[in-house]
């Protein structure tokens, strides 16, 4: 149907002769005030995030130094023994993990096809934000931060900084610049579609790790 006719019909049903062109007045916007006013101090926020992330089936660790995080990643990878690691490549520069990754065959985003990334055992990414309230990691797609890296491999490891942790979703929604694809991920992929029996990894990763550098 013609757009104008469609909107005209909607307007008339709502008792208006023409579609509204000025923004309507709003009594309330967004979450209730008791919620929006709640901001946790940093240490509490970090702990809250770890608790929530663990409750979702994720495995989170905090490191006081960048060197600690690099060691932590090295240790984790030595346990996982991936055949191939898909990474954000230059998108991970600030974490200085080039040496740690050198021991493994890598698929760097931008240099390989999406199908290759799909075959990797581990996807290694940074993130845009973490949300303490729900244990969520937020990924904003950019040319260097491909969508597939955190989504397609069997295991996902996210590197993040304490300064990226927010208390609640609303803070991220108001701060963030919208990318074409903003992804809020809370734990591994899950389904209860077979006799209510929960299984993980049905489409996305079956295991998630978060390694946090306490940069502030």
């Amino acid at each position: 149907m013609n757009e104008q006719d469609f909107l005209q019909n909607v307007a008339q049903r709502l008792g208006r002769s023409h579609p509204m062109t000025q923004p309507p007045q709003r009594q309330v916007v967004g979450a209730p005030e008791f919620w929006t006013q709640h901001v946790e101090p940093l240490q509490e926020r970090i702990e809250h995030f770890l608790t929530a992330f663990t409750a979702l089936g994720g495995d989170g660790h905090v490191f006081d130094t960048l060197a600690g995080l690099q060691q932590g990643l090295s240790h984790l990878l030595s346990q996982l023994q991936p055949k191939q690691i898909a990474t954000w490549g230059d998108g991970l520069a600030e974490f200085g993990v080039t040496d740690v990754l050198a021991a493994y065959p890598q698929l760097q985003w931008g240099q390989v096809s999406v199908a290759d990334v799909s075959r990797a055992d581990v996807g290694l990414t940074g993130c845009s934000y973490a949300i303490a309230d729900t244990g969520t990691l937020v990924f904003a797609a950019t040319p260097t931060h491909g969508r597939g890296v955190h989504l397609l491999p069997t295991v996902h490891i996210a590197l993040l900084k304490a300064s990226q942790v927010r208390t609640r979703l609303g803070e991220v929604l108001s701060e963030t610049e919208l990318s074409t694809y903003l992804h809020f991920v809370s734990g591994p992929s899950r389904s209860s579609d077979i006799e209510n029996d929960q299984s993980i990894g049905v489409h996305g990763p079956a295991a998630m790790f978060a390694l946090m550098w306490k940069d502030i």
């Binding site: 999406v114 729900t134 797609a141 040319p143 919208l178 992804h183 992929s189 996305g204």
Partner: peptide
């Protein structure tokens, strides 16, 4: 819906992929 405190994946799509992006 399911008694979960948060959905596992909330995906926000704003337009098609940009020219330099490799997926989407």
């Amino acid at each position: 819906a399911t008694g979960q405190s948060v959905i596992t994946y909330m995906s926000m799509i704003t337009g098609p992929r940009q020219v330099q992006e490799r997926d989407g």
